[in-house]
Amino acid sequence: MPHQQIKATMKPLGDSALIVQLGEGMNPTIHEKVKNVSELLTNHPFEGFIELVPAYNNITVYYNPYIVHTSQLGASTAFVKVANHINHLVEQVKSSKNESPRTVSIPVCYGGELGPDLENVAQYHNMTPEEVIQIHSGEECLVYMLGFAPGFPFMGGMDTRIATPRKETPRLSIPPGSVGIAGKQTGIYPLETPGGWQIIGRTPLDLFLPKMSPPTLLQPGDQIKFVPISPSEYLEYKEMKQ
């Protein structure tokens, strides 16, 4: 089987991190590369490696330049030493198709107090709220990355018929579990934070699980299926957790 040729370009993010760029834009093929290179680097770290953050089409790698310098001979900068290590690894990435992705069902109570922007989103597209719910829960979404807040999934693949711009004035406080739309993305707020996404519903599930390992319900690569539930079902879920 021919190897999938992966091209990586490196750029410094200051003196203690660098970005491994694996493509442009948002698509599942590039995301697969991000996943594969992240896994390989996690399993084959260099001296001075601290951690990495995978994103849509790149990986940010954090390192300690002092350890990189003292553990590797040579006059070049720590950036060059780390970049060489990663380039060497990237050459070894095989086009291994990962085992089939997990599908995680997320129950969502749409509209009403829990989804105050559902009506606006429907009006914006000349639809009924029911149509928005049907479309949002119709297709599976892909979790590309976690960021912004612990366990916050940046998801792609939402049906573009309900793509809606952010609110002009962000809310000062959005309750945990809120499901929102921002442009072509959909996401779920794990903690109470300010935010400008259009809130169309809420899930009773906890996305941030600080005492578990890993500490988040969702992981990059997960397929998400939103399942509409009624307000009384929402309350039942909430009670079950206590």
């Binding site: 993010l13 200051g14 991190a17 970005i19 994103a55 990986i59 940010t60 960021g147 940046f154």
Partner: peptide
Amino acid sequence: LLSEGVTFGT
């Protein structure tokens, strides 16, 4: 710009 990693001092 799509969201990506940032760091202390960015």
